[in-house]
């Protein structure tokens, strides 16, 4: 039987564990994921997300660019600069109006330690709140 797919060695994009996976593709489309038996972090194991949750990659609903709401409240395509400015203005407005604890940060379990450190500094030193947590607590 000829192999009807290509295998590409990579690291799972979900959490910070960094499981090694082989992504199976055909015609430049993901058709499956297999764990790498020699992956140093996972030794052939995966979780339900790493193993099965890849349909988002080619999903038509997937956002391909930033979007912001216009004056009518309708989402419109925007540049990263516009989107980040809009988000920053929203955070600052909330903090000004309701106090520094009106803002709550949830760091991503997908990020490396350094990015998580930056996130907690952003919340603690930036907004002056200790309301910082991590999605992995759920």
């Amino acid at each position: 039987m000829t192999a009807a797919f290509e295998k590409t060695r990579t690291i799972c994009g979900y959490c910070g564990v960094g499981c090694t996976v082989d992504v199976l593709t055909r015609d430049n489309r993901i058709i499956g994921i297999q764990p790498a038996l020699d992956g140093p972090a996972n030794e052939g194991a995966l979780c339900v997300k790493g193993q099965f949750a890849y349909d988002y990659v080619h999903h038509p609903d997937r956002l391909r660019h930033p979007m912001v709401r216009n004056a009518e409240g309708v989402l419109e395509r925007a540049t990263w600069k516009q989107a980040l400015r809009k988000a920053a203005a929203g955070f600052m407005q909330s903090a000004e109006r309701h106090g520094r604890h009106a803002v709550y940060g949830i760091a991503s379990g997908r990020t490396p330690t350094e990015a998580d450190y930056m996130m907690q500094r952003f919340m603690r030193a930036g907004f002056g709140t200790h309301f910082i947590d991590n999605c992995s607590r759920a």
């Binding site: 764990p35 193993q51 099965f52």
Partner: peptide, 10 residues
């Protein structure tokens, strides 16, 4: 079952 898929792969 957590649907980790290890049974499938082995």
């Amino acid at each position: 079952c957590t649907f980790c898929g290890q049974c499938v792969q082995t």
